[in-house]
Design a protein around this nucleic acid. Structure first.
Lengths: 196, 196
DNA sequence: AAATTTTATGAATCAGTATTCAAATATATT
DNA sequence: AATATATTTGAATACTGATTCATAAAATTT
């Protein structure tokens, strides 16, 4: 019996994220992913069934992490709804700030995964439901405007975050991450219009 | 001398939008675009240099329209900054509400165009500068919180709109367009947090 | 140290599709 | 109605790159 050395599965996935980020999913070549992960092309197919599987696994890992963080957050009884939303923004920024390539892939390729009805990204819908629940609680508790549509809000906020992350991944210097984070929080908390 | 009949250039571009929306840029086949526009494959190449050119032209037209609308809006002296932002949201929704395929392409494929340094989409940057100028004026005039970063705001808001349009293009029934429009306006005007 | 089993390799295969271009067709001109 | 010119066609081409699989290498067992 021979035993696997290193962690090729992980190496390959991390290389895939880098290559997907740099070239886009369709521009990414399996040969390049193999090279980046110091593995032969054939080995890619020992750990992942094909190129699409690599992309799906990237998103599964991501949404699983995001969901776990959100779940821990949602259960905190010592946080108000406002604080939960505040920390939810941190969850996103924390995950992506340590991996800008992941942010790029997230922003640009998510629709490829979502468009395909054959693949169900686990944890994605769980994440969304739980995020909506927080907003809904806020409306019941009176801290969030009850006239706003929960789903619309959720998409709007996540879309805004997504776009900012894209900008940051493309040009990290243009708007520093902490600035983005604070701006989003301010907009969500106080709204765009300044009232004295 | 023979004269061109119909408007193949337009027919082709409209077919391309439909096919790009349905299959994504990379999933879209030139043969399908030819079929949809009632033209032979060869004819596509008489009007557009290649597949990428089709995509670029879609975005050039789009940003040109958006820019023209915004310019007219920005020049209105009878509108306050707040009203201008309000109408800016209408500009987006008006253009896309009559063409959901265009919304889908806009949301999903913009990064392909932006990633390529060889193509400069005309009017895109003009649009963005002008949009930032409105926000900036609002800050100078005191109606917008001066602590907010103009670029960050611009990306956040457009990202939110983009995401909502994506949802609408995928599932038009989930959140009706007027609801989306009003929600965005409320969030921008009053902020997420409800104050009595 | 030979045999066995698992893991890894990468050249060759194969399928898909954007693009080309020689030929055909339609309109206009003489 | 013959000629000239512009427009259109779509089968054939050319290329790219994902995937396969016969072979090799490494670890483990006997």
């Amino acid at each position: 019996m021979r035993v696997k050395t290193g962690n090729k599965e992980k190496d390959i996935l991390e290389a895939a994220i880098r290559v997907f980020a740099k070239n886009g999913y369709h521009g990414a070549k399996m040969a390049k992913i193999a090279e980046e992960s110091n593995v032969s092309i054939g080995t890619l197919y020992l750990y992942y069934v094909n190129k699409e599987d690599l992309l799906v696994k990237v998103f599964e890992n991501l949404w699983k992490s995001l969901y776990n963080e959100l779940e821990a957050l949602a259960n905190r009884v010592d946080f108000s709804v406002t604080e939960k939303l505040d920390h939810l923004i941190d969850v996103f920024f924390d995950i992506f700030s340590s991996n800008s390539d992941l942010a790029t892939v997230f922003v640009n390729e998510q629709h490829l995964v979502m468009r395909n009805p054959e693949v169900q990204v686990m944890y994605y819908h769980d994440f969304m439901s739980k995020a909506e629940l927080i907003i809904y609680d806020g409306q019941k508790g009176g801290s969030i405007n009850p006239n706003l549509n929960v789903k619309a809000l959720r998409f709007f906020i996540l879309g805004g975050i997504r776009n900012l992350l894209e900008v940051w991944a493309l040009e990290p210097r243009l708007i520093p991450l902490p600035i983005m984070r604070n701006n989003i929080k301010t907009v969500i908390k106080n709204g765009l219009i300044h009232k004295n």
